[in-house]
Design a protein around this nucleic acid. Structure first.
Lengths: 294, 294
DNA sequence: CACACTTACGATATTCGTAAGGATT
DNA sequence: AATCCTTACGAATATCGTAAGTGTG
């Protein structure tokens, strides 16, 4: 009662070759199979697509008018499913990532390179934004994947830890704090401090910890870019605290770092996914690569 | 290995209702059938279209992107086959007829009315042209059907007789020939003659017959329109010969007719079809109606 | 008789519905 | 307990290939 894709393929092959025998080779079917498929199709549409003369087939006017429609139908069909298949076989696709600047610059270059080698035709789009925006983008489906600190109370987001980072004190060379193997958080209050963006997750961590040890930073100024913090410290304006991953990015002559202790803070970093928006195949592949990376 | 139309239907129904149970009602299938069809489709395309959470289904990004494509695919599919079905069920279509002017005006009005009553949505297009042009139009597929005299030596045309006509002598009232019950061809030569277009099949018939009886018409003039012939005869300019079908069309006061004998000619009229171009369903229906008409 | 399409028939695959089995609210 | 999805299984259907049949050049 219902025409099938296969019947459409048969019709097109027969119409183009005007012969069942030749069509059977194109479609990789036996000649009788072609004959029957064509007959079934004609029963389905309620009339003859071909006029059977003695030894050859001729398209009826209806068949002739239907042929281009059938070709378009089949092409659209194939194209649609090839597209879909490409996406699932990760030969095509797009992944949008929202990552903390620290991770965007720190973890990303290596991961991106590996991913691009594995799936060269998948497009990667990276947004380096702050933690709250990351949560929002993942929540709204504007990003497939977030790379950030745990999202806290958001029950529509999942967090999967990937690596742990720690905070380090960053000082200009020759600074007294560098004489120690490690620096206690409480000691930071004694020096001018170069802060990073108050909205950033690390800054909020830092403020919270200082509060918990009962001290207050002597903040000289805040910078939005980590590199700026590095240069200001190198210039001797003050000291700072950075996640060690961030420090690695700006490590240059003139500054040095010491681990921060009392308390020793582990900063958990990982992947954020939405519960409401399932990950695409490409995004899942990237997640798996990130998991396997460490 | 190959997705099916039914699987596409299921996918769309599930995507729109976000529930297998509800989709099963739309598609008129059992719930397990929906579940399996969806799973098969996902196997076919190589990835998940839905993310199965505890009790509800959520489209994956791939499924979400595919949904509008699937809808378009299915709509195109349905539309194409509905069109085709309409053509075969004669609910739509077009028939182009090439007919001799005699038949176009004589046979046609009744047949057209019957056909249009039976198949109101089929478009009829009529070309009243001469016999040679009819043959050419049918041969080239520009007309589905010819209504004419037998096409002679054309082996790519078929002729099916429908009715026979005879020739009549047409005279103004009071003309001496009207005194007889029938007129012999040989008697025509004695009076001024109003001819019809030399290229028309009836004229060629007439000339041939006159030659065979060894007489020559005294041709006053030729007219292209049969109505013109009628008026000229009525005006007393001369007599004429017309197929009786044609005479009926122009029968008015002032002219009368008598059958032509010696020889008694039967003019065969019928349908011309192409051997190379099979008739459309609509054209076949018209042919059948014409056959049944007499 | 060779060629091209059709029919016949048995084997395989797909699809469906009923019934039973989880899992979640 | 109720709801929803999944799995299991037997039946109906569809599709295919081999083989035999039909008709034309």
């Amino acid at each position: 009662m219902n025409p099938s894709i296969q019947q459409l393929r048969v019709f097109i092959a027969v119409a183009h070759s005007r012969s069942l025998a030749e069509a059977s080779e194109r479609v990789h079917l036996s000649q009788p199979a072609i004959s029957i498929a064509l007959r079934k199709l004609e029963e389905n549409v309620g009339g003859a697509l071909f006029a059977r003369t003695s030894r050859q087939l001729v398209l009826t006017p209806e068949g002739d008018a239907f042929l281009p429609v059938a070709v378009r139908l089949l092409n659209d069909w194939n194209e649609a499913f090839e597209d879909l298949n490409d996406q699932f076989s990760k030969q095509r696709g797009k992944v949008t990532i929202a990552a903390l600047p620290t991770l965007a610059a720190g973890l990303f270059p290596q991961v991106i390179r590996l991913f691009h080698e594995a799936y060269p035709r998948i497009n990667l789009s990276l947004h380096d934004v702050l933690a709250e925006q990351i949560n929002q983008m993942v929540r709204e489906g504007r990003a497939d994947l977030g790379l950030s600190v745990p999202p806290g109370d958001a029950d529509d987001l999942t967090f999967e830890p990937v690596l742990e980072d720690s905070y380090v004190a960053v000082c200009p060379c020759g600074h007294p704090l560098l004489a120690q193997p490690a620096v206690a958080w409480g000691q930071l209050a004694a020096y001018p401090f170069i802060g990073i963006n108050r909205l950033s997750s690390s800054r909020q961590d830092i403020d919270r910890i200082m509060q918990s040890v009962g001290e207050r930073l002597d903040i000289l100024c805040d910078a939005r870019q980590i590199a700026t913090v590095g240069r200001m410290v190198a210039a001797g304006l003050g000291i700072s605290v950075l996640p060690s991953l961030s420090f690695r990015q700006i490590a240059t002559d003139g500054i040095a770092h010491r681990p921060l202790v009392e308390p020793t803070i582990r900063r958990e970093l990982g992947m954020i996914l939405s519960r409401r928006h399932p990950p695409s195949a490409a995004a899942s592949a990237l997640c798996q690569l990130i998991r396997d990376h460490e």
